[in-house]
């Protein structure tokens, strides 16, 4: 199995996750999308030194992992390439911000280190929430939810067609890669000098497909606007889900929960 085929397999696995049955899967995509957006907004809004505050936001992915039955390990596995990128963004913080911010057991910890950890945690939580969204809501339901949010039809169409054709494109890449390796035995990957023609071929094939696809759309009455994709009506549970999490997120953001808990014990 080459890399492209592995990517295709991973995509198939993601599809299978959306077909699971759990209380979270049964909620409307719109409510899940809104809760995820709110979660990301609130998470990134925490101050750069507010590590405990951001840590409390882990409650949402924790509850979702428990309710949906989706494996946390799978999530970490899927995020393995993204986490280092998030870490790269804040990697220099400890070098630039050296002022000691707190001391733990006599060891002073700099503001840069705390801000780095906060950033890393924020990134991981946002990635987790996004992963949970796409593994509990089907793509067509998400597109319908985006249209309900009045996201322009063109963007939703591009998003939907990209998802539909990513597997076709990946299959094409897999075939081309296999064809290349059959005539270039012993080579690891595709030689640098072949990349131009390889990508050129891929582009030409993609354009051919795009033209034929557009013709197929025109032949069935496409006039620039996709028909209404809405199908899931928001149910009571979805509304309760949305409102409950909105209240929890706002409470976590504006009430210092760790401090409140600490005071309870101090008394």
């Amino acid at each position: 199995m080459n890399r492209a085929e592995k990517a295709l397999h991973a995509l198939k696995q993601m599809d299978e996750l959306t077909e699971m049955d759990s209380p979270v899967h049964r909620l409307s995509a719109l409510s899940k999308l809104l809760v995820t957006l709110l979660f990301i907004l609130i998470t990134v809004s925490f101050h750069k030194y507010d590590l405990t505050g951001v840590f409390m936001m882990a409650l949402y992915p924790y509850v979702l992992f428990q309710l949906s039955g989706i494996s946390f390990r799978l999530c970490i596995y899927r995020m393995r390439y993204a986490i280092p990128l998030v870490a790269m963004i804040g990697i220099f913080n400890p070098f630039f911000d050296r002022d000691p911010l707190l001391q733990i057991a006599g060891i002073s910890i700099s503001g840069g280190m705390i801000s780095f950890l906060t950033l890393l945690l924020k990134g991981m939580l946002c990635l987790c929430a996004s992963f949970l969204l796409v593994s509990t809501a089907k793509i067509d339901d998400l597109c319908a939810a985006l249209r309900r949010m009045h996201v322009p039809s063109l963007l939703v169409t591009v998003f939907m067609l990209t998802y539909r054709y990513i597997s076709v494109l990946t299959e094409e890449v897999a075939l081309m890669t296999d064809a290349y390796h059959l005539r270039a035995p012993g080579q690891k990957g595709i030689a640098f000098h072949a990349w131009g023609s390889f990508l050129g071929q891929l582009l030409l094939r993609t354009m051919d497909r795009a033209q034929e696809l557009y013709a197929a759309m025109l032949l069935r009455g496409y006039n620039g606007e996709f028909p209404d994709l809405q199908k899931n009506e928001n149910r009571t549970a979805s509304w309760i889900w949305l409102i409950t999490w909105a209240v929890i997120f706002l409470a976590l953001r504006w009430l210092n929960i760790p401090d409140l808990i600490g005071r309870m014990f101090m008394r």
């Binding site: 539909r164 197929a216 009455g221 996709f226």
Partner: peptide
């Protein structure tokens, strides 16, 4: 594959 551009079969049939 060029003809079936909607995510599911039912949506594709309903498209036209």
């Amino acid at each position: 594959d060029h003809q079936m551009f909607m995510p599911t079969v039912a949506q594709d049939i309903a498209f036209g």
